[in-house]
Simulated scan of single mutants.
Amino acid sequence: MSIRTLRQLIPARQVSDGAGVKIKRSLGLSQQLRLDPFLMLDCFGSDEASDYIAGFPPHPHRGFETVTYMLHGHMLHEDHMGNKGHLKSGGVQWMTAGRGIIHSEMPQQESGLMQGFQLWLNLPAAEKMKAAAYVDIAPEHIPQAALAGGGQVKVIAGRFQTDELTLEGAIRGLSTDPQFYDLHLLAGQQVTLQLPAAHNALLYVYEGSAELPAGQQPASAGVHHAAVLSQGDTVHIKALADTKAILLAGKPIGEPVAQYGPFVMNTPAEIEQAIRDYQAGQLTGDQPMQAIQI
């Protein structure tokens, strides 16, 4: 058994995106703050409508996947093919931009709390130009279970495994083998789980604080910090208070990354082509858009 230790702690920084939505960004603050295959991690959360009401008007993507996990609130996704998807509290949208998509994500509430995450997950070169598709996952279709000693886990993607529990997630079988868990732990609770040893992994705390192994002495990860973990096959987490955190892990792609805003390819020439395609109205081609409801 090889225990993963804390390698780097990235404090999230408040930035503005879309039409002025206030978010906290950890991964993606710079090109150096990526974790292959993860490009960006945003946490949004406010009960002030002015922080989110302008939303994300129509914008393009090419070459990667977006995962939106809505903890609280209601967003409407619309795309260039006329598809609509309602993302409500507890739900997930897993979108593959592939060759190209133009979409919007707009709040469907004028007050109250809106909270959640958006993750950008890279695609290998062989998949960057495939047809766009997305899956809407209703809250009741996200597997969840109680943990030994209290608390619970929701498994959005991959396989969650401890000595006492194995739980398959809603999304499986992708080339980067992403693992995406939402952990709710009680103060003082400890959990030890298995991960594929070669995957890159991080823990993002969005409520409370967590203790992680870190060499001679354990170290803590506070709220809105992304804790990047070393390689290993086992993760050990201790909640220092009632704690909520997402754990992400994925198989590294190991390819060059060229990014310009909403386009993520392998070379600058491919980025230039994406810009030309978008300007010419050919970003998405004639591809059909596949929409699946789970």
Results as ranks from 00 to 15, higher is better:
Gly28Gln: 03
Gln8Thr: 09
Gln273Lys: 15
Phe44Ile: 02
Pro218Asp: 11
Ser220Arg: 14
Arg62Phe: 07
Ile142Asn: 01
Gln31Met: 07
Leu119Glu: 01
Arg13Ser: 14
Phe117Val: 00
Leu121Phe: 09
Val228Asp: 04
Gln152Arg: 14
Ala54Phe: 08
Gly208Asp: 02
Glu48Cys: 12
Gln108Ile: 07
Ala226Leu: 14
Met114Thr: 08
Asp277Met: 03
Val155Tyr: 06
Asp242Leu: 04
His236Met: 09
His80Asp: 15
Gly151Lys: 10
Gly150Met: 01
Leu202Ala: 03
Ala97Phe: 02
Lys88Phe: 12
Ser46Gln: 07
Ala226Asp: 10
Ile53Ala: 13
Ile53Ser: 11
Pro37Asn: 09
Thr5Phe: 14
Ile53Pro: 05
Val257Ser: 06
Lys238Leu: 06
Leu29Asp: 11
Gln282Asp: 15
Gln290Thr: 15
Leu123Met: 07
Glu272Gln: 13
Glu140Val: 13
Lys24Gly: 09
Pro288Gly: 01
Ile171Gly: 06
Ser209Ala: 13
Glu211Met: 12
Met106Cys: 00
Leu174Gln: 10
Gly20Cys: 04
Pro262Phe: 03
Gln118Asp: 06
Leu240Thr: 04
Leu119Gly: 02
Leu195Tyr: 00
Glu207Ile: 00
Arg25Asp: 03
Val135Asp: 10
Gln109Asn: 09
Thr176Asn: 05
